[in-house]
Design a protein around this nucleic acid. Sequence first.
DNA 1: GGTTACGGT
Length: 485
Amino acid sequence: MILTDYTEHPQLPFLEGEGRPSGQASIITTLWDEHCQTAQEIDIKVGDLLYLKNLRPKADADNKIELTMNGFRPGSQGFRPTEPVRKLQPNDPFVKSLRLRKTQYELHLIAQNNERIQQNGSPANQGVGSVSNQPQPQPQPTSTFITHSTALANSDLPLPLNAPKIPISPVGAPLSSASPAIATTRTTQAPLQDILPVSNTPLQREPSSPVAVKRELTRQPGSPTRSRSAYTPTRPSSTPAPPARGSVDIEISPTFVLMNKVKQAIRNTYAEGLRFVKLRARVFGFEPANLIDFSGPKCTKCPYKYPPMSECKPPRWCPGCGLEGVYKFEYNFKFKLSDELNQLFTVDVDDEHASTLIGVAAGNMLRNENQFKLVADRLALIGVSNVLDQSEEIFFDCCVRQNIVREISKEPMGRSKKRTGGSLPSPIAKRHTYGSQEMDETGLSEPSPSPPPSTEEATTSSTDVQASLGLTWSLVFTEIKKKDL
DNA sequence: GGTTACGGT
């Protein structure tokens, strides 16, 4: 079999891919005896995800690394492994980590490719060593390739290892202490792979962190505190003042702009009792976990939203309407905000408002690295990045709207009312409204049956409490502006 | 946890 776990190595065969991952990331693997038989019995096919125990490395005639699974020899002192050859079920935790590796590898390839284009003509394999940013590369003593040790402990991320000295001992450069592999032969779509530990050189995994740098950069000499909006929150003396830095390079929506928009929205529309709240807040969490998935494909003919790109590609036919899978990319993510009083809000950001916020329309960030950079750079200004940086708390002004949820009475009327005091939606209504912009709009045009709870009540609640009360929020009218624009 | 490893183009 030809396998990959998205790890490159100069001693792997195949430079470019032809149905395999591009780059030197495919490895030839021989199964002997019962292993070969098992593989056939469980019908291993191209594209399957496998877990193989006790692979042994060897150098072939050309000094390329190969893997071997030797058969068990009765009479030897050795132990017979349990399920040495196994297909991974989709819900296996290894599958997730493998997909993550794949995504990261793809990003790496894109970046590498761009670099090559810019420098015009350097060979494909160069530059590998130059992209380094890997925390603590740790050579592991004797390690097995794809196997046995079930240590999932050290996260999904493979450790870049030393360049193996093949002929001698077992490969000193394992992919990770335990990593599943993908079987390929042909037909793997484009780029695969992961990090490239070519000769000790750790690889960059998170292509998204240009942010931290920028923050530091442009600071206006004379005006450190420039551009704070008129909004001056009151804050208990016990609460430390929010760091004023962070906002250096950014100019964020002035409060009056927000308020004008809010007033206009209220005037123009619908809503009586619609609640807008302006906040100075920071993002302390977000979903999905990877910025790549902040935008994803959505069917243009029905409301179906495809699962995250980093986990799988959109199928040819839309599972929602069954018709031809025509889709476009839309933003859809959540921020967890904490304001200056440490009040927590989980805030939905739909495509429209994400576009306003970020300043760029949604696109396929997995395929288009420029797109990714634009988005990542912009979000970095408010401290949202794949790379954790807790050192700085960046507050920005924003506006959120309380989602109004219609009562849907599948549940015996009154039950949820009793529990919640009359104005809150049933769990069913909540589920339907969640993350669905269309629902939101219909909700708006039909004012909620009873007045919303007071601002004070709502904002005093923790996120959890809010959620249990059926309160959800959407980000609206917020822009991140660069100072120099 | 403890143990061993051939062969094929």
